[in-house]
Write a protein that binds this DNA or RNA. Structure first.
Length: 196
DNA sequence: TAGGCCATCTGGTCCT
DNA sequence: AGGACCAGATGGCCTA
């Protein structure tokens, strides 16, 4: 059975029922510019470690020429300085094109992963949890639980006095959370899903 | 210090 | 040809 067939019985919702869809339209990617600095931290391009970056506003104009510019849909133009690209340009003969393609692919991959992480952040923001940040794995687990609980509520399967009755030993994910998955009813839940 | 988590690079594969 | 996606490798940061 495919996911599509499983979901085919879901009621129809209007766009207003999904505020997250609206959130995703916001220009969250912005137009930051990160410049790799020598001796940087663990992730030379990661905004997380801002101490190792400088804004392109202070960039030399000769370097400005070598900036790779990429357009991101609905979020304006993102300018990304890549010193590796400069080196690729300065490479020797036949290798140059290959290097440039690799560098461009790296930049695309970074943007792709940043988009993925943004999606994880959005998902985290709608999952009830205590203050500690869920890992990616835990985020997916909790999302699965949360969706399952909400859908059960939606179709009226869950009865007020019989909550968790169909999953003996399982309790609502809306309570306290902590990682450490366990299995319950064929589904792998973070341990926070249980009350000991 | 070990282990978990994460960001990035890289090469391969598939698709347009 | 070029872009998207994926998985493995690598190395940094953080915490128990």
């Amino acid at each position: 059975m495919t996911a599509k067939t499983e979901l085919s019985s879901w009621p129809d919702f209007s766009a207003e029922d999904f505020p997250l869809l609206e959130q995703s339209k916001l220009g969250h990617l912005g137009s930051r510019t990160w410049v790799k600095s020598p001796g940087g931290g663990q992730s030379p391009y990661s905004p997380r470690d801002t101490g190792h970056y400088a804004h392109s506003g202070s960039m030399d104009l000769s370097l400005e020429k070598l900036m790779s510019v990429s357009k991101l849909a609905d979020s304006g133009v993102r300018i990304e300085m890549d010193l590796d690209a400069v080196q690729a340009d300065q490479g020797e003969g036949g290798n140059r094109k290959q290097k440039r393609r690799r560098v461009a692919a790296n930049a695309r991959e970074r943007r792709r992963m940043h988009g993925l992480n943004k999606a994880f952040d959005t998902l985290r923001s709608v999952i009830p949890s205590n203050n500690n940040k869920l890992s990616k794995y835990d985020t997916l687990q909790m999302a699965q639980i949360y969706i399952q609980e909400l859908s059960e509520l939606l179709i009226g399967v869950v009865k007020p006095e019989g909550r968790g009755g169909s999953r003996s030993g399982c309790t609502s994910p809306l309570g306290s959370f902590s990682p450490e998955p366990r299995e319950c009813g064929g589904v792998f839940f973070p341990s926070s899903h249980f009350i000991d």
